[in-house]
Computed example of a mutant assay.
Amino acid sequence: MRKQQLRILAIIVFIFGVITSGALSTSAQVEQVPTAGISINGKIVNGINPIIIDGVYYLPFVQLAKILGYNSIKFEEKTLTYEVTDGSTAIRTTMGGTQAKKGNEYVNIKAPRWINNTAYISLHAGGAIFNTYITFNKSNGSIQVQKPAQQYVVHSGDSLWNISRLHHTTVDDLKKANNLTSNIIKDGQILKLPDGGTPKEMEPVKEHEPVKNKNQTSVAAQRQKVLEVAKKYIGAGYKFGATLAEAPKLFDCSSYTQLVFQQVGISIPRVSRDQASKGTTVTNLQAGDLMFFTIKDSYSDGRVAHVGIYMGDGSMIHASTSLGVAITKNVMQNSYWSKNYLFSKRVIQ
């Protein structure tokens, strides 16, 4: 038993050494470059401080995350791991790791680096995890961000299958969009993402995970209470990746629904994609059901990107980017929300 414990300890130490050597390597050639303007879809939105490591451009991870709206940021110092969210999907990445976790899926990336107590991520890796396409413009020294991504840079370990899964398309559509005659792809290859139609993430509709419900009142009373609590916050502002500490002044869509249900004694996860895995899929909606949507203008991967609470009369109360917490009447007749609708889940039952 003692030998087995020592063997396990040795393996852990070895793995940690491999990870930290990739994250903290001091032998890398690091070149400081001037502060760059960062442009999203052709519009300068901020400045950022890139560096060059062994000839590859890297950006400060936290700075990039905030610029892209991932304002909820947690850091695990022991493992050098960041978890960030914009309210739609939680992303986890560890310094030196060659895979990042995006929701419940894994993305192959060039390992993020930890230099001078700052996390840096390559342009390609930043694009892969944030559903953007990021390039450096040599002519003016700026960082260009295409959001949502229309292109994807292949990383070591990628296959057409996992790229198609990440973007909720098919291998055949990827091959067709890129005139590929085989499934062979290589590191650094730029693939065009299919633009035919709107991809939709429907995987969570199949998941029926139960929720923790401490409320002892009737189902009808719980539904009524959810609506009462939800209405209290009408007029509150919107912020991508808003933290619970910023409530009740600021919400994103999922921090709003989480807080509302929490105050009724029902526990649901923090982000909309995870909330979509809870409860039971329904088509005959009742008050208190959660409605889920994609947002094509923000995410080309068709992900669950927005959540609201059905009010029982055709309306939805939600935290929207344009209005903050507000009521959208006749939501399924609304030209915008109806075309982006995915499915609904019932967590009060």
Rank of each mutant, 00 (worst) to 15 (best):
Q4F: 14
L6T: 12
R7M: 14
V13I: 15
T20K: 15
E31H: 03
P34H: 00
I40N: 03
I40Y: 04
I40C: 00
I40R: 04
N41P: 01
N41V: 02
G47Y: 07
I48P: 09
I48S: 08
P50H: 03
I51Y: 03
I53M: 11
F61Q: 09
S72Y: 11
I73Y: 11
I73P: 05
K74R: 05
K74G: 03
L80S: 13
T81I: 03
Y82E: 08
V84R: 01
T89A: 01
T93G: 10
G97M: 10
A100F: 01
A100D: 05
K101V: 13
G103V: 09
N104G: 10
Y106E: 15
N108L: 02
P112S: 08
R113P: 04
N116I: 03
Y120G: 11
G127A: 05
T132P: 07
T132Y: 04
I134E: 04
T135P: 00
S142Q: 13
Q144R: 08
Y152R: 09
V154I: 13
V154Y: 09
V154W: 07
D158K: 07
S159V: 06
L160C: 11
W161A: 15
L166I: 11
D173S: 14
K176F: 04
A177L: 06
N178R: 06
I184D: 13
L191A: 09
P194S: 11
G197F: 02
M202S: 01
V205M: 12
E209G: 06
N215P: 01
T217M: 00
S218G: 02
K225N: 14
L227A: 06
A230G: 11
G235K: 03
K239Q: 14
A245N: 09
A245Q: 09
K249A: 12
L250D: 04
D252N: 12
V260P: 12
Q262H: 13
V264Y: 01
G265A: 05
S267V: 12
R270T: 02
R270H: 05
A276F: 05
A276N: 08
S277I: 09
T281H: 12
Q286M: 12
A287P: 07
A287L: 06
D301R: 04
Y310R: 09
M311K: 03
D313Y: 08
S315I: 04
M316D: 08
I327Q: 04
I327C: 03
N330F: 08
S335W: 07
Y336W: 14
W337M: 07
K339C: 11
N340H: 14
F343T: 09
K345L: 02
Q349C: 00
